[in-house]
Amino acid sequence: MPDVPMFQLDGVGVDYPTPAGLVTAVHDAAFTVPHRELTVLAGPSGSGKSTLLRVLGLVDRPSRGSVCFDGTETTNLGHRSRRLLRRDHLGVVFQQPLDNLLEYLSVEDNLHAAARSARRACDAAAILARLGLAHTADWRLTALSGGQQQRLAFGCELARGSAVILADEPTSQLDEASADLVLETLADLVADEFTVVVASHDDRLIALGSHVVRLREGRVAA
């Protein structure tokens, strides 16, 4: 069904309980995410973009509204069905690189572990070469810079073969040179027909997006 978007959100709201009462992080969000493009959820800190990314990644359920993934309504799916969708189709790269990786494994072994988690095999050497990390295969993660760790996190999603990759502020912890390589990696992923959704306030990353959803105070801007 080529006319069906990868994601379609209608009236999505997200509430969080706090000691002071219920706080609404996202108000009635409605937008689509097309296939095989880079979509950027753009906005300042506190605008709701990371919350929406977790909703898209089927990590959090919305408090209300509808979230369709490739034509399947996910909001009322059971835990097992959501977990299988995440495992087989969705890859998530978190803001802190080490949150995406297994610190007790080597660089190369992280790629193999990611592939096994999706019941796949991978060419770890080719992935590392593609990311400019060919010389690090036997390194421990603590020997990598933060930028290298983030590149490896994207490499793990390549190893898993996820159709959709979601990334939360992937350049925010990086120096300019490392951020440049992440931008190149994102462009390469789209060229290879991955669907990529990124939450970011990095102007260069926003400019790279073919589809930009702008958020302010938990609302999608007109």
Rank of each mutant, 00 (worst) to 15 (best):
210 S>M: 06
171 T>M: 03
220 V>A: 02
136 T>V: 09
162 S>D: 06
197 V>D: 03
174 L>N: 00
87 R>F: 01
206 I>N: 03
69 F>H: 10
127 I>H: 02
60 D>W: 06
197 V>M: 04
137 A>E: 07
183 L>F: 07
70 D>F: 02
201 H>C: 08
196 V>K: 13
68 C>Q: 15
48 G>M: 03
198 V>M: 08
44 P>L: 05
135 H>K: 13
140 R>W: 13
11 G>I: 07
161 G>W: 03
213 V>E: 04
164 V>W: 03
110 N>C: 01
38 L>D: 00
40 V>T: 14
49 K>L: 06
99 D>Y: 12
183 L>H: 15
118 A>P: 04
184 E>F: 14
138 D>W: 15
42 A>D: 02
208 L>G: 02
203 D>S: 15
121 A>V: 12
110 N>Q: 08
40 V>K: 09
178 S>V: 10
41 L>Y: 05
164 V>A: 01
86 R>H: 02
64 R>Y: 14
102 L>C: 15
216 R>F: 12
185 T>R: 08
113 A>M: 06
206 I>W: 01
199 A>C: 04
214 R>L: 14
222 A>F: 10
170 P>E: 12
60 D>K: 12
154 F>I: 05
47 S>Q: 06
207 A>L: 01
6 M>N: 14
104 Y>H: 15
222 A>L: 03
67 V>L: 11
188 D>R: 14
49 K>Q: 07
144 L>K: 02
177 A>P: 12
107 V>T: 08
96 Q>D: 10
45 S>V: 09
97 P>I: 13
37 E>M: 15
211 H>K: 11
4 V>R: 12
191 A>W: 11
12 V>M: 00
40 V>R: 09
203 D>G: 09
131 L>Y: 00
28 D>G: 05
